[in-house]
Design a protein around this nucleic acid. Structure first.
Lengths: 342, 342
DNA sequence: CTCCCCGGTTAATACGTTTCAGCTGGTTCG
DNA sequence: CGAACCAGCTGAAACGTATTAACCGGGGAG
């Protein structure tokens, strides 16, 4: 079991052949004579030779793995994005590695630095902040990348996203049409474009609503997760006058708010309606099934990966045109906004 | 913006020093004179030089990244494991990449092959099947690895797991003590040791229960996910006589079963009690908050990563002792098994 | 018979880095 | 005054692979 360092050279001498031939057996079997091929292959199996990715990549200059760097893997939305991207990568014969920045800028740039050093084929990127200096440096680094769940000025890079302004409008309009006059919006860190855009959508919808004037209360949450949602829910309960409906910037926040309401015996939706965002699988299974704004998560990942693959395949001479894909969100109405049998 | 290929050599000539000096500036700044250091560094910044990971690793022979290969990233339990592992890696100055086998054997071995070629420092592994030939080949490959959420015969490798038999017992005993006579167990693919062990625990608990004899119905689910849970829930509803309690091999299944019950207007826990496994965050936020068996997910990941790091740090000459860590699960009782104000 | 081509193989080179032995000029010690 | 040393730097040798030009023996075309 001499597992120490068997290289192409060892295989070559053991098979009585040159290293070039061994390389051919591994990478282009069709060019080597059948007899030689099986002999070399059997030596490879016997010795347990595995080619060395570093040397291979150093020599060839290109990698066969791409990366997905997401904002928050604890959010099932991004897990679905990853699933879609993984499938597209697999279809193209590439490997995908997933990295999680956890909404932290420094973790994000650490990963970007590592991926740059590794010379990955490309990166699918859902960055914390589009404007930061660290991100700009990465982009100057010349590694192909596609923005995911985030748009970017046309021509700068490919991007695949959902119209978050429209999504915010969708949610707020639904609440307005359900007769709510005082609506709360629980928003995450404003550094996230998603949060800013959804807020814009909410304000648009309220401004466009027919008289009478609606009131909007905005509650800030420090992060887009369940425990921040619980906090926000507690604050919501303390408000006076209390809003009759709440829209949350994502489903994790909404689930947290819901927990706080249920714990305080506030009836949903009778006393407080709730709308979430993302329509993660758990939204429909919640204490009160959540009305939510659905995004085609897996398709976003799949499309983004396809764009990246297109960008990194050498189309000899043909220059790459950056492309921007924007999907439209869709409102899924459930019990959390439907007053039952009056 | 000539982003094409700036290597250490380009930096060297631009700064008027030798390549060795540039390498030192990057890797051991303390050995080079301050004046030279700042000059070289400024050239590096200006040219946007990034050292090449492949060449670096090829030369030095060791990698600074380790990998985590999980069974199912859609299960928040594994996301927590990843979080713990990531933290431990970061503490040791290593990078962690996460790969998702999605409970598919072929995807798993594709990732293992890639990680082997890449010569990663080590792999944290929660395999689909401990016995398969493909896994055996990987293990012969000599890449250090630690099993996660899965025990392995002592001495073969390190492993960090939770006592699943005890967990199954915990859940079943709780239901027995709540007075249930006919219990259903929704189990996932038996190829997963977790499923087998939890079933063993259930049978142990029932065998050990005082008279009268309890009845056990086992329902097979094709996968450990929510939609399989919904299917199982539908089958459960069709049973006659119908069990009065159901224990699910994980929380995703339990949430699916719960959805099916709620949709059919079956009251939980009055008509049907439910126990899940993993105590994921969403279990407490479900339609009826779920009683569940909690596992210390983040700690599992953290400990496993620490073991791997210990195994791969050269303790000059001291041979590595494989270690097995087993945590005990804990029952968290919630509304899904507590009949309310009778 | 010569020439050329062809399938199959070899030997050499380059990829970008790290490392290490050695060179330099200057300073301190005996 | 010479020897020994020092900091700071240089230059070349690997690391394991993919690639390419060259080589070789034999068979078909001319």
């Amino acid at each position: 079991m001499a597992r120490s360092k068997v290289g192409i050279k060892d295989v070559a001498v053991a098979a009585g052949v040159s290293v070039g031939t061994v390389s051919n057996v591994v990478n282009r079997p069709e060019v080597v004579a059948a007899a030689t091929r099986v002999r070399v292959q059997s030596v490879i199996d016997e010795l347990g030779y595995v080619r060395d990715g570093s040397a291979r990549q150093l020599r060839s200059g290109t990698s066969r793995t791409m990366a997905l760097l997401v904002l928050d893997l604890a959010n099932p939305f991004f897990v679905d994005v990853a699933r879609g991207a993984e499938q597209a990568a697999q279809e193209a014969g590439l490997q995908l590695i997933t990295c999680n920045s956890g909404q932290r800028v420094d973790t994000e740039s650490a990963y970007l630095a590592m991926l740059t050093e590794q010379r990955v084929r490309g990166v699918l990127l859902s960055p914390v902040d589009t404007c930061g200096e660290r991100l700009a440096r990465f982009r100057r680094g010349g590694i192909p990348h596609v923005f995911v769940d985030r748009t970017v000025p046309a021509g700068e890079a490919c991007s695949v996203a959902v119209d978050d302004v429209a999504g915010g409008e969708l949610a707020a309009r639904h609440l307005v049409e359900s007769g709510h006059r005082h609506i709360a919006f629980v928003v995450g860190p404003r550094i996230l474009a998603q949060c800013r855009d959804r807020e814009t959508g909410v304000r648009n919808a309220l401004a466009a609503a027919p008289a009478p004037k609606r009131r909007l209360s905005v509650l800030d949450a420090p992060a887009l997760d369940v425990s921040s949602g619980r906090d926000a829910g507690a604050r919501l309960l303390g408000m006076s006058p209390r809003p009759t409906a709440v829209f949350c910037a994502n489903d994790l926040l909404a689930l947290g708010v819901l927990q706080a309401l249920v714990a305080a015996d506030v009836r949903v939706p009778d006393e407080m309606a709730i709308v979430g965002y993302d329509d993660i699988e758990f939204a429909g299974a919640a204490a009160v099934p959540l009305t939510s704004v659905r995004q085609p998560a897996a398709r976003i990942g799949h499309t983004a990966a396809e764009l990246l693959i297109a960008e990194t395949s050498d189309r000899d001479g043909v220059p790459h045109e950056h492309e921007t894909v924007v999907y439209m969100p869709e409102l899924v109405v459930r019990a959390s906004t439907q007053v039952r049998r009056r």
